[in-house]
Design a protein around this nucleic acid. Structure first.
Lengths: 215, 215
DNA sequence: TAATGTGAAAACCTTCACAGCT
DNA sequence: AGCTGTGAAGGTTTTCACATTA
């Protein structure tokens, strides 16, 4: 994917920069060079400068970047200077863990509604969120300001749920189900799949083991 | 990264192929073409053929691939034809969700030990796992067959925990903490970070919103 | 002096297109 | 006839290296 002349890989790295800059700021650091920032993130200085150059000129030659300024610019570019409303579908173990995860809200991501197809689950309250029946999804998303759907249902139901979310007008999906979902090109999807991560990791663990014993 | 002439991106896609092939098999499909497999995964047929060609010749011209055979070959290449032992560090909300997640064991990933620095937590049992004090980590990993460490501690402690795991001899790390960890090149690390995923997503949501209203 | 911003070069990855096999 | 396997072409991403500026 590629948007407005900016390569996708670049957009994927920007949040990393934002986080590192926030840390630097918290540590009282006001100016940073691409070299130093790269050291923190294991990224080459040239790559950082090139990435930033897609969006403007944020540094001062001979000095580096003002940490707060660069951080705020990047947050604005990414749309992180405002709140985003999300709904969660699937309030099983995983869904509950997601709702309880304290990392979303401080970054401006608020889960404002939750749905489940299980009648047992509907009506219960988790972290101040009352679980609603799936039938309510369309009206709530269509009517409101919800732009992101978080999918935490079993694999077998995932595609169906994703279709519902897309129909209701969600433009972004964070999918925790272990499937390869199909979405229209206008919808942005991100998959969280720890098993896939492990399954590509083991390839290298095998090589490592070979090196350690034979070879 | 690049290992044995095989590009990293290729290794990242192989587990996707394995999963799709398993699904096909479950659906009773015995033969598949790169075209059909690509359709399921939103990958071009040429890419699938090229990816596979790094490891051998698995298909039959004019017919396609035997689903079971290709699946088993790929599992072997990735090291998924055996069990992998992992330990979990951090038994907070997130750690408990990870231990309860039913997706790891069926794929051969067994969490066989758990550690926490909180004295309150130590000694409790979650899903048949008794939480042990951090002091035990080194001996247990060093002595045993644990090759993967799963990190589910707060950001502030993550690097320290990762260092301990690496020192103890773990070769792979699945990190859920929102940090950019530093590890030796011999250690493979995968980060699970839903907030970063959302933060790159919003860039495109912004563009989408612009398109929808003004331009 | 010290570090940015950026064209050009190099490396890398994907797609094409077709020979060759079943 | 149909589909794989693969060199070659095309495209994208990273790195280099240096003019430029504070």
């Amino acid at each position: 994917m590629e948007s407005g002349g900016v390569p996708d890989v670049v957009v994927l790295r920007l949040p990393l920069y934002v986080r590192a800059l926030s840390q630097l700021l918290a540590a009282g650091c006001e100016v940073v060079s691409s070299q130093k920032l790269g050291g923190l993130l294991q990224v080459t200085p040239a790559q950082i400068r090139k990435d930033l150059s897609y969006f403007g000129r944020f540094g001062k030659q001979g000095r580096g970047y003002n940490v707060r300024f660069l951080r705020d610019e990047l947050k604005q570019i990414l749309g992180l200077d405002r709140k985003w409303h999300a709904c969660l579908v699937g309030m099983g173990f995983l869904g509950q863990a997601i709702v309880n995860y304290p990392g979303f809200a401080p970054e401006g991501f608020d889960i404002v509604a939750a749905f489940d197809s299980d009648a047992e689950m509907v009506g219960t309250t988790v972290q101040g969120l009352t679980v609603q029946p799936m039938g309510e999804l369309d009206a709530l998303v269509r009517g409101g300001s919800i732009s992101v759907g978080v999918v935490a249902v079993p694999a077998a139901q995932a595609q169906e749920v994703i279709d519902k979310l897309v129909d209701a007008g969600v433009h972004g999906i964070l999918n925790y189900a272990p499937v390869a979902p199909q979405v229209p090109t206008s919808v942005v999807i991100r998959n969280i799949d720890p098993v896939l991560s492990l399954q590509s990791m083991t390839f290298y663990l095998l090589k490592e083991a070979e090196r350690a014993s034979g070879r």
